[in-house]
């Protein structure tokens, strides 16, 4: 606990120095929220939307409440569900992160939608994304760089067959 406190203090001090005067929010990683394997699907020219995928793990119960990115005009959190062989997509206000349990944003489930892309995304590009979390009444932020993978990139851990739960 002491270590975490010192780390957040250091982070806060750093943020304060770096962004003096700006409103600063605590870093999610210091509150035990981990973001792994963030990637975004490449687009073809004139395609204005694509999905971002990742794995989120929070030590304490928390919630993803928003996402921002300079790469797109709008960013939304969506959930996909398959019902009677029909794919349905809905915007959701957030994603609950149960304590210590990894939550996958992957094809066949949740994803972050980038809408109104400012430029096509090419394989190998990095897309900066800022994730906003809520944990114990506090607002936290984490900036990650999502790696652009090819259009044919499979769902995390396998292809179409990995989506059996739907």
């Amino acid at each position: 606990m002491k270590k975490i406190a010192i780390k957040s203090l250091a982070a806060a001090a750093f943020a304060f120095c770096a962004l003096a005067g700006a409103n600063h929010v605590a870093l999610a990683q210091d509150a035990g929220i981990k973001v792994d394997d963030a990637w975004v699907r490449a687009t073809v020219p004139s395609q204005h939307a694509t999905g971002v995928f990742m794995r989120l793990t929070s030590n304490a119960a928390g919630r993803l409440v928003g996402v921002e990115s300079q790469a797109a005009k709008h960013v939304e959190i969506h959930e996909m569900a398959m019902q009677d062989n029909v794919m349905k997509m809905r915007q959701v206000p957030g994603i609950d992160l149960p304590a210590g349990q990894p939550v996958e944003l992957k094809p066949g489930g949740y994803h972050v939608m980038l809408l109104g892309l400012k430029a096509p995304l090419n394989v190998g590009d990095k897309v900066p994304v800022t994730l906003k979390f809520e944990q114990g009444g506090k607002l936290l932020e984490q900036r990650v760089e999502a790696e652009v993978r090819g259009l044919t990139a499979p769902a995390h851990g396998g292809g179409a067959a990995a989506n059996h739960k739907h």
Binding site: A49, K73, H74, E76, H78, M82, N85, V86, M87, K88, M89, R90, Q91, M113, L115, G116, A160, A161, N163, H164, H166
Partner: peptide
């Protein structure tokens, strides 16, 4: 959706044989 729209749609892949006859629907899974 908040800023735009998305499409719900059937996710089956239809297989039509060489004679133009509908034969199989492949499931997404």
């Amino acid at each position: 959706t908040g800023s735009s729209y998305t499409m719900d749609h059937t996710a089956l892949t239809y297989v039509i044989d060489a004679n133009g006859k509908l034969r199989i629907a492949l499931r997404h899974q």
